[in-house]
Amino acid sequence: MDAAGQLGKNLLSSHPVLATGALEEARNAVTEVYLPHELINVEGRDEVAMVLNAVKDRNFTLGYLTYGSSARLTMPATEDTYHVNLTIAGSTFADRQDGERATTRSRLSGVVLLPDQLNRVQWTPDAEQLILKIPRRSLEGHLADLLGKPVRSVVHFDFQVDLTTARGQALLSAVEFLTAEMERPGGIADNPLARDQLEAYVMSQLLTAVPNPYTEELSAPAEPVQDGRLKPVVEYMESNADLALSPTELAKVGCMSVRSLHASFQKTFGESPMAYLRRIRLDHVRTELLNSREPDLQITDVAMRWGFFHLSRFAQQYRERYGELPSETIRRG
């Protein structure tokens, strides 16, 4: 396989890191993006056909990796990051320090590499993976927000990720959707707020799809808070609707967990907090369109000022709420 020739065919190809046949170059690139490790070709050749594409953001790193050879990696404990390896082609064979073993197969399974374990993974030549590198502060902070209490130790996920369950399929779908959006011009890559929310969704899917000590607590229905406790959250939304608000921030305003925030909004308003916020923002857009006296007013500028960056979706949501397109509102204004 010609690694350089394959680059344009692979996922995240607009975020290339390296395509190389040299084993040492491959090791250095994966070390730089993911973690220090030893790398050998088990067939005894000092070569691979590696392609690595990756993009890093505030919450985690997302990458596509293939070695195009029988590569074996030995990875010491990182202490500060989780790695989620979702196999989308071929197979890998993994084991870790505590004796656990796992086999991953295309779109059926993956593994979670814990920060406090040495891990070894052998790739078949046709193996390809989507790999998340998630700092402990991101994942454990997100879990703490969901639970409404501190998380101060490593989340000990099961080694193997079952992608055949409904939740496993949801995790794979979320990661693949994020991957596609990072490639799409005008997609989430250009919208930091939406990107943060999707990355948070991916972490939530991981926490519910892969068994861990918090699985039962996360699966239990969240208790809604008393209606009065939503008042400061709604007031904060209305006063800051032009800012990049997130469920995590809103939950902190209301002194509750993210799960309780969602349960409370569903009980009181029949919709999620972000859907409620969208209605507030749509109302602001409509008010501007109706009251503006600017002859050259641009709908795009108004929409983006209120957090609507996907304009076709904005127009659809506006029409669903008001029964007319934004352009029709301007003509009536």
Results as ranks from 00 to 15, higher is better:
Ala77Val: 09
Asn85Trp: 03
Pro135Leu: 05
Arg105Asn: 05
Arg101Val: 13
Glu128Gly: 00
Leu113Val: 13
Leu108Lys: 09
Val112Gln: 11
Leu139Ser: 03
Ala144Tyr: 10
Leu118Asn: 12
Thr74Ser: 01
Leu143Cys: 09
Ala94Tyr: 01
Ala94Ser: 15
Arg96Phe: 03
Ser106His: 04
Phe93Val: 14
Ala144Arg: 10
Ile134Lys: 05
Leu143Tyr: 12
Leu108Cys: 02
Ala89Gln: 10
Leu139His: 01
Ser106Gln: 10
Asp116Asn: 14
Ile88Pro: 08
Ile131Asp: 09
Arg101Glu: 11
Ser106Phe: 01
Gln117Ser: 13
Ala71Cys: 06
Gly99Pro: 12
Gly68Ala: 05
Ser138Val: 04
Trp123Glu: 06
Gly68Asp: 01
Arg101Ser: 04
Gly110Asp: 07
Ser69Cys: 03
Leu108Glu: 15
Pro115Val: 01
Gly90Pro: 09
Thr104Val: 07
Ala77Asp: 09
Ser70Lys: 13
Arg137Gly: 03
Ser69Val: 04
Val112Thr: 06
Asn119Arg: 00
Asp126Lys: 03
Ala94Lys: 00
Thr87Cys: 13
Leu108Tyr: 00
Thr74Val: 09
Glu79Ala: 13
Thr74Pro: 02
Asn85His: 06
Ile131Pro: 00
Val111Trp: 01
Arg96Cys: 14
Ala144Val: 08
Val112Trp: 01
Leu73Glu: 07
Leu132Gln: 06
Met75His: 00
Asn85Pro: 00
Gln97Tyr: 06
Tyr82Glu: 08
Ile131Gln: 07
Pro76Gln: 08
Leu130Ile: 13
Arg137Asp: 13
His83Ala: 15
Arg136Met: 12
Ala71Met: 03
Gly141Asp: 12
Ala102Leu: 09
Asp145Leu: 15
Leu139Arg: 03
Asp116His: 14
Met75Lys: 07
Leu118Ile: 10
Ser70Ala: 15
Gly141Arg: 12
Arg101His: 06
Asn119Cys: 12
Ala71Tyr: 00
Leu86Arg: 02
Leu118Cys: 04
Thr87Val: 05
Ile134Gly: 02
Glu79Thr: 11
Gln129Lys: 00
Ser106Gly: 13
Glu140Cys: 02
Ser69Lys: 02
Gln117Asn: 12
